[in-house]
Simulated scan of single mutants.
Amino acid sequence: MKKALVVDDSKAIRQIERKYLEELGFFVLEAENGEEALKVLKENSDITLILLDWHMPVMNGYEFLKKVRENPEWSEIKIMMVTTENQQKSVIDAIMAGANEYLMKPFDKEMLETKIQYLFEGF
């Protein structure tokens, strides 16, 4: 079973993303900011997908993304920014920092599933 980490400061968004991911066959872990997500990641070496919000307290998604990509052990993890941040520069910054995909809020299950299929080709 694939394991995913949902990182968002909104409990409601985490619950929605968890539901969709579980319906797609993922075991789901959660974190409410980047700092907490780093701890979860260190304890779970088998995470294959991270859904990551941009705007969060303590450590935002962009800072978390850069820290994950600095660690070669985590290079295979697929990271999808899931955010309301829609400035073209922000999208480019996230992709350049190592995000594999970008999904705008609000979204539905089909949109998320399509992006995941693209990330894992043949999921």
Rank of each mutant, 00 (worst) to 15 (best):
E85H: 02
A4R: 01
T48V: 14
E35W: 01
E73N: 15
I13D: 11
L5Y: 03
T83G: 05
P57G: 04
E73F: 08
K2Y: 08
M59L: 14
I16K: 02
M59W: 06
E63W: 00
E76G: 12
E22K: 11
G34P: 04
N71T: 13
Y62L: 15
K11D: 11
F26G: 01
N60C: 06
G34A: 07
W74G: 04
I77N: 05
E30Q: 14
V58T: 11
I13C: 09
V68A: 07
G34V: 05
L41A: 06
G61L: 08
K42M: 04
R69I: 11
N60D: 15
W54P: 02
L38V: 04
L21K: 04
E22H: 04
M80S: 14
V7R: 04
W54Q: 11
R18P: 00
E17Q: 13
V6F: 03
P57D: 08
L65D: 08
S10F: 10
K39D: 11
K2V: 00
T83V: 12
N33L: 02
K78F: 07
D53A: 06
F64L: 15
K42W: 05
V58K: 14
F26M: 04
L29G: 04
I16P: 00
V28F: 05
A4C: 07
A4V: 06
W54M: 14
K42F: 08
E17L: 14
E30V: 07
E43Y: 01
W74L: 14
E30T: 13
W54L: 11
L51G: 01
K42H: 10
Y62I: 12
A37L: 09
K11N: 07
E35M: 08
G34C: 05
V6W: 02
L41V: 04
E32N: 13
A12W: 00
N71E: 15
G61M: 08
V82L: 11
K2P: 15
R69W: 09
L24Q: 02
L24F: 13
D53G: 09
E63N: 10
K19S: 09
L65Q: 08
S75N: 14
L41K: 03
N86C: 06
T84E: 12
W54E: 05
L24S: 00
V82F: 05
E35K: 13
E23S: 05
K66E: 14
V40A: 07
P72T: 13
E73W: 03
I77Y: 07
M81V: 15
K2T: 02
K11R: 12
K67Y: 03
K3C: 09
M1G: 05
G61P: 09
E17S: 07
R18E: 14
I47M: 10
E23D: 12
L21G: 02
E85I: 01
D46G: 09
T48M: 09
A31L: 05
I50G: 03
E70Y: 01
